[in-house]
Design a binder for these strands. Structure first.
Ligand code: NAD
Ligand code: NAD
Lengths: 214, 214
DNA sequence: TTAACATTGCGAAAATTTTCACAGCAAATA
DNA sequence: TATTTGCTGTGAAAATTTTCGCAATGTTAA
């Protein structure tokens, strides 16, 4: 099996989300053109993406929603429960803890880190908070592979170094900083300012642009 | 001048951010390979992107940082100050208000909206809060073109309809919902769950993937 | 003055991503 | 039973994006 592109993975995750939302409808099957309309892509794009997951639909009934969800999950979900670490329990850090809490049984934020002694030693939205000096050790001990970074820009690189030291494999970065990591650590940047600037730019164009994922 | 692609705009905005951060260094010029290293792209990619902004560097001195920042800004920034509306003053809504407050003189969140009477009628992080029924009117009156959506999933479409009714041109959407909008309204989706799922997927691969923007 | 050098701008090639177009198929219909 | 219908899966074409390769160019050094 050759590698599936980042864009395809993004779209597959989106399809799964849409299917989960649409799962209450009475129909058990769904056609590529229906999924395409929901997602904002072309039917051909949807079929091409679904080829990659190996689940095959029927020309008569389309794709079975439940089975498709299952097939996408088999591809994108980890085999077992994954713990996630969060660094920086400030305003977004806390919002993310609140939002994530109890949402998924497969993915759970189980350790949060901060320098502020007001925050460490407590449990916030179900998540135990630790001083940041213990980050590398805790990440290593628990085999945590994924981190969410919500510290101020000035602390982003040093906290990243600690995450990497602990053996992290992927970071979702909300700080407006380009992190330096070894080539086998995956980083997804989510700078809000840049996102707003982009939307403002497209808000100013006369001709409408395509919508996109994220 | 033919249209600049979404990806190029994203990268240009990133370059500007990196240049602003690096502006304190003593050198006034910068080479494509330096910018490329900072951004995580190839030098050829950087030069190709910079072609689009029209500012031309010198083989000897590279690009003048200040002039490059200015050229990119001329392309991506609005001509005058832009007001931004924010809907949903919950945990992320508030975090965004706090984070944005006083950060930019060109872009400012000047109106926030919520259903909760506890929140409306107040000023939060410098931003006046209004009941959501007044959203369309206020957006129209003030000519607001850009909106940030932080309401619960169930309210996302109806609040979007109000934004569109008010004449919005672009939406930064934090709700896990695919919004239905007219084709000339730009939507950038920022679903956090999907982002985490993606990072978790890449955290599980043996072979490292490319880092990417956002 | 001249040669060596590192870089830009950009045409063209390469790689990747998306779309087209249609064979093949199961169900519905006549 | 034969025919029509509308879908999937996919090879191939088209479009888009990235990278390559190099002439042109200003700078430095001899
Ligand atoms: N608030 C937003 O909407 C928003 C959006 C996008 C990105 N961001 C970015 O996210 C980051 C945090 O933003 P915020 O608004 O939550 O800020 P904040 O000041 O509310 O929170 C930052 C937190 O990080 C902690 N911290 C500081 N240094 C640390 C370190 N070395 N190790 C661990 N923790 C440390 C602080 O104690 C604090 O709790 C910033 O980089 C910001 O640019 C914020
Ligand atoms: N918290 C996060 O980190 C996070 C991250 C990504 C996305 N989101 C999404 O952002 C949205 C908000 O998340 P949150 O954690 O801030 O939730 P929250 O419950 O803290 O805030 C939601 C706010 O929206 C208001 N609201 C409800 N209906 C409204 C309406 N019709 N018009 C205007 N305002 C209305 C509520 O009064 C509340 O103030 C959700 O869709 C969530 O999925 C949250």
């Amino acid at each position: 099996m050759n590698l599936i592109s980042e864009k395809t993975i993004e779209r597959l995750i989106l399809y799964r989300g849409l299917l989960l939302q649409a799962n209450h409808e009475n129909e058990s099957g769904i056609y590529s053109h229906q999924l395409a309309r929901m997602a904002g892509f072309t039917p051909a794009q949807v079929r091409r993406d679904l080829m990659q997951v190996g689940y095959t639909g029927s020309p008569a009934r389309g794709y079975d929603k439940a089975k498709l969800i299952q097939s996408i999950s088999a591809l994108v979900d980890p085999a077992e429960k994954r713990e996630i670490a969060l660094a920086g329990i400030g305003s977004i850090g806390r919002a993310i803890l609140a939002y994530f809490h109890g949402r998924s049984s497969l993915l759970e934020i189980t350790a949060a880190f901060d320098t502020d002694p007001e925050k460490t030693g407590r449990v916030i939205h179900g998540c135990r908070c630790h001083p940041v000096d213990r980050l590398a050790d805790i990440v290593r001990e628990r085999g945590i592979r994924t981190g969410i970074l919500c510290v101020p820009a000035g602390a982003a690189q040093s906290v990243t170094d600690a995450l990497v030291e602990g053996g992290i494999r992927g970071i979702l970065n909300y700080a407006p900083t380009r992190l330096i990591v070894p080539p086998d650590v995956y980083v997804e940047n989510r700078d809000m300012i840049m996102a707003v600037e982009k939307v403002v730019y497209f808000s100013g164009l006369k001709t409408g642009q395509r919508k996109e994922n994220g």
